[in-house]
Computed example of a mutant assay.
Amino acid sequence: MIPSIAQCFALMEQYAMLPNIRAHSLMVGRVAARIGQGLARSGHTLSLELIVSSALLHDIAKTATLETELRHDELGREICLKHSLDELAEIVAEHVILKGGMPERCSEKEVVYYADKRVLHDQVVGLEARLDYILHRYGNGDEMLHTRIRQNFAQAHAIEERLFAELDFPPEELGTQLDRDLFRLEGFGA
């Protein structure tokens, strides 16, 4: 099942998503929706509803995992499965690190993964700004961890190239491409 926007908001409440995490998730939803719309115009067959719902719920477990050793991507997958949101489960599970290498064509999963990498708190930023934040916030001064984080962002750069080869605007304009009323305009019924 793919949840509606209203159902996503209800799950955010149920799992006590902190306001800052909710604001981040809403912006990731807007970014992912804009990319998804552009890809659809380029002839890609993607589910905009799946993209938006997955983006809104990508951090559904973030609040519960703060101050713990639990991984919010793994717990988020479990939460999706618990609520019969099977279509979202793997997208949520892989929004931090994509498994399986680069696909031939980007799917909903890559769109959500990339959109998350472009949003710092609730602002659209370039990949390098987000990388700097991740290194500082989660790198713990561990060079091996820094290397893994940089490798993950190398994949994000590769996905950016692939996505924007299909879009009618460059990555630098992503923030200006967002429509504040996107969910209502596209019939998502927020």
Score class of each variant (00 low, 15 high):
17 M>S: 12
146 H>F: 12
87 E>L: 13
51 I>K: 00
173 E>D: 15
139 G>K: 01
89 A>R: 01
112 V>F: 09
97 I>P: 01
92 V>Y: 04
74 E>L: 13
20 N>T: 14
87 E>T: 03
104 E>I: 13
116 D>N: 14
126 G>M: 02
47 S>F: 08
112 V>T: 12
3 P>H: 05
12 M>N: 10
179 D>W: 11
97 I>N: 08
8 C>V: 06
73 D>V: 10
189 G>C: 08
132 D>T: 12
148 R>F: 10
9 F>H: 12
18 L>G: 12
15 Y>I: 06
38 G>N: 04
25 S>E: 04
83 H>A: 00
71 R>D: 13
161 E>R: 15
45 T>Y: 07
40 A>W: 00
41 R>I: 06
124 V>T: 10
35 I>W: 05
176 T>R: 14
149 I>L: 04
105 R>T: 12
43 G>I: 12
99 K>M: 10
39 L>C: 01
126 G>F: 00
145 L>V: 07
126 G>T: 07
76 G>P: 02
101 G>P: 11
172 E>W: 05
64 A>D: 11
26 L>V: 14
88 L>A: 13
75 L>M: 12
114 Y>M: 00
69 E>C: 04
29 G>H: 07
51 I>A: 03
97 I>M: 06
112 V>C: 07
188 F>T: 06
70 L>R: 15
49 E>F: 00
23 A>C: 08
71 R>Y: 11
161 E>S: 15
66 L>S: 01
99 K>W: 06
48 L>D: 00
83 H>K: 01
22 R>P: 02
91 I>S: 08
65 T>A: 04
73 D>N: 10
59 D>A: 03
3 P>D: 05
168 D>P: 03
189 G>A: 13
158 A>H: 09
111 V>I: 15
58 H>F: 05
22 R>C: 02
61 A>I: 08
17 M>G: 04
92 V>P: 00
15 Y>L: 07
87 E>R: 12
76 G>T: 03
55 A>Q: 09
18 L>M: 13
33 A>F: 15
42 S>R: 08
111 V>C: 10
79 I>A: 05
126 G>R: 02
96 V>F: 11
37 Q>F: 11
150 R>E: 12
6 A>Y: 02
127 L>F: 10
153 F>Y: 15
156 A>W: 06
117 K>N: 13
6 A>I: 14
30 R>G: 07
114 Y>V: 01
152 N>V: 04
89 A>C: 04
98 L>D: 03
114 Y>I: 01
137 R>F: 09
65 T>Q: 07
173 E>T: 09
99 K>D: 08
